[in-house]
């Protein structure tokens, strides 16, 4: 990341040029919202962070504690999920295995949801790379829900705006780790700043084989996995072995 003192993405810059006055007020109002969420260090130029998560699926036991703590952290309504754990079952006895895949918003480097948002309600925070939704701006058009290759977004049935995991910015900005990381009993989730080479996540990322989900979509996810099973039910078409996915999301298959 460059050392831009002025935190603007390209799209925001474009917007400001295009409709200076009105856009400026919008940007300013969201900037006020930002500054209340995170207070940048005084004096020296704030160092840009890049938050990421590494999930060591070998340590995951599929207990759903992360899902539950996320639900209670945000009071997520019934039937929708910011964080969930998928079970993948492969094969038939005796050649059979089961894997767990904790899922959440991938906080992509190139988030499609941001590209398609018509109001600028969803944007990638330049200071830490977290993709957020300004629930005061969102009109609930559901374009971002369509555009997310990970099905990480949903329309909150109570507030009627788009919602998704935001790496618990309210906790992270106070120096805590996200709720799911905090509650994980297997310590399968490692959260940190990958722009800091000395962070634990940087050390683990560089010393382990890791994967991301749907790399072909070009989104460059910032949620990495160790030992993730990428099997999908599509493989059943080949007829060689059986793949069963349980998403633990109400009436939702994997997209």
């Amino acid at each position: 990341m460059s050392n831009n003192s002025k935190p603007v993405t390209n799209r925001r810059a474009f917007v400001q040029k295009l409709v200076g006055g009105v856009a400026a007020t919008t940007v300013a109002s969201s900037a006020v919202a930002l500054s209340s969420a995170e207070t940048p260090p005084e004096g020296k130029k704030a160092k840009l962070k890049s938050y990421a998560m590494l999930i060591d699926t070998r340590r995951c036991i599929g207990c759903h504690t992360c899902s539950v703590s996320c639900k209670s952290e945000f009071d997520v309504p019934l039937g929708v999920t910011r964080s969930w754990v998928e079970y993948t079952e492969k094969g038939t006895y005796p050649n059979v295995s089961r894997h767990f895949l904790p899922r959440l918003c991938n906080q992509c480097r190139h988030p499609q949801c941001v590209d398609v948002c018509p109001t600028g309600a969803t944007y990638k925070r330049p200071q830490d790379g977290i993709v957020v939704v300004d629930s005061g701006q969102c009109i609930g058009c559901k374009y971002c829900i369509q555009a997310c290759p990970y099905d990480a977004r949903f329309l909150n049935p109570e507030t009627k705006v788009a919602e998704k995991c935001d790496f618990c910015i309210h906790r992270v900005s106070k120096g805590l780790v996200p709720s799911c990381v905090n509650s994980c009993i297997g310590e399968a989730r490692i959260f940190g700043d990958i722009s800091d080479p000395n962070s634990e996540i940087s050390r683990l990322l560089t010393t382990n084989p890791t994967t991301v989900l749907r790399p072909g979509k070009g989104t460059e996810p910032q949620v990495y996995y160790i030992g993730a099973d990428h099997s999908d039910e599509h493989e059943n078409n080949r007829g060689w072995y059986d793949v069963r996915i349980t998403t633990h999301r109400k009436e939702k298959g994997r997209r």
């Binding site: 409709v19 590209d115 398609v116 018509p118 109001t119 009109i139 609930g140 058009c141």
Partner: peptide, 24 residues
Amino acid sequence: ELGQPLRAGNLFHLINLSPMSIGS
């Protein structure tokens, strides 16, 4: 069809490169 029909005006606070924004 919008989740927040009353906020439809938000579409016209700015133009960005979203096809929906330009289309609106």
